[in-house]
Simulated assay, not measured.
Amino acid sequence: MNIARVRLLAWKEVRQLRRDTMLLRILMLMPVLQLVLLGYVVSADVTRLPTAVVDLDRTPTSRQVAGAFTASDYFDVRERPEGEQTLQPLMDSGRVRVAVVLPAGTQARLERGETAPLGLVVDGSDSQSASVGAGYASQIVARLNAERVATLTGGAHPGRAGPPAIGPPGSPGLDATVRVLYNPTLQTVNAMIPGLVAFILMLSLMVVMSQAVVKERESGTLEQMFVTPIRPTEYLVGKVVPYAVIATVQCAVVMGVGLLWFRVPFRGSVLVVLTGLALFMLTSIGMGLIVSLLSRTRQQAQQAVLFIALPIMLLSGFIFPIDSMPEPIVPVTYLIPLTYALEVLRGAMLKDAGFDALAVPLLALAIFGVVVFGAAVFATRRRLTD
Rank of each mutant, 00 (worst) to 15 (best):
L358E: 00
Q139P: 00
G167V: 00
L363G: 11
T47L: 13
G195F: 04
S93H: 01
P328S: 10
I290F: 09
L23M: 15
Y340N: 03
L293M: 13
W261Q: 02
A366L: 14
L315F: 07
E84A: 13
L17T: 07
L282P: 00
Q300N: 07
N190W: 09
P331V: 06
L338F: 01
P172A: 15
G374R: 15
M202P: 03
T248V: 13
Q211W: 11
D55I: 08
L186K: 02
F199G: 00
P232Y: 00
P361H: 12
T385A: 13
L363N: 14
L8G: 08
T61G: 06
F368P: 01
Q88Y: 04
Q250F: 12
P265C: 06
G238P: 03
R298I: 02
T86S: 08
V249K: 08
R58I: 09
F266E: 02
L259H: 08
K239M: 02
I336D: 04
R143G: 10
S43H: 08
L315R: 03
L294R: 15
A309C: 12
S62F: 05
G39P: 03
Q139K: 14
D20S: 10
S62E: 04
I312T: 11
T248I: 06
V257D: 02
R25L: 15
R58D: 11
P50Q: 05
A150D: 02
S131R: 12
T248Q: 12
L363K: 13
M281W: 07
P328Q: 07
A44Y: 12
S292M: 13
G317Q: 05
T151K: 11
A44N: 12
P103G: 06
D126E: 13
F318L: 15
T61D: 01
L102W: 06
R58P: 02
L196H: 03
L152R: 05
L144H: 01
G159S: 13
V141G: 03
I26C: 14
T115W: 01
S269M: 05
T380Y: 09
G124L: 11
D20T: 09
A116N: 02
E218T: 14
L365T: 02
V213F: 13
T233K: 15
A104V: 04
L260C: 09
Q107W: 03
V65F: 07
P361L: 00
R95S: 10
V178H: 08
E82N: 10
G288Q: 08
E343M: 15
V42R: 08
T333K: 13
V360N: 09
R63P: 01
R109G: 01
